[in-house]
Amino acid sequence: MKKLFREFFKGVIKENPTFVLALGLCPTLAVSTSVVNAVGMGAAATFVLMGSNAMVAMIKNNIPAKIRIPCFIVVIATFVTIVEMVLKAYTPGLNRALGIYVPLIAVNCIVLGRAEAYASKNTLMNSLFDGLGMGAGFTLALTLISSIREYFGSGKIFGYALSHKFEPVSIFGMPSGALLVIGILLILFNRLKGRKS
């Protein structure tokens, strides 16, 4: 049990996919404009990560090494398509906001990266928790970035306008602002980890 927790927390801090591994930055730039989008994207990616990690861990012994990548991709794409259909059916608003980035989870490097680097070498339970941890780390990073961007870029938080008025800094709503925020957070993250370049 303790080991499973370790697998989980590793993804949140020590191997955070966004701030440490720097994987999956493209959807991070695109959907972190508002907290609602970020949480939705994070949840969708977490589901795909857990599903594909678990599935890959289960079938890893039956897949020949030479064709493992296409097999992984089919598994991942299946889970992504499930997520897309469910989102369309039950939360059309969120689906429209996330747009093309839902189907693009299929090519998000975190998902294939974890399948290849972790799930194909570890047990089912470990892989499941690794997926959950990575998903949680991704969601956390997205939420952090998007709350900063939403606050400065539109003066709102969670979609609600704040009482005090200031002129929104619209660069934070653009992809260039996302790069800035990620860069500044990376500085802080590395500082906190006590790592000096």
């Binding site: 020949p64 097999c71 089919v74």
Partner: peptide, 15 residues
Amino acid sequence: YGFILGTICIVAGGL
């Protein structure tokens, strides 16, 4: 190889 990949695809497609 083809058989294995095909099986996975068929299962995924069915799902």
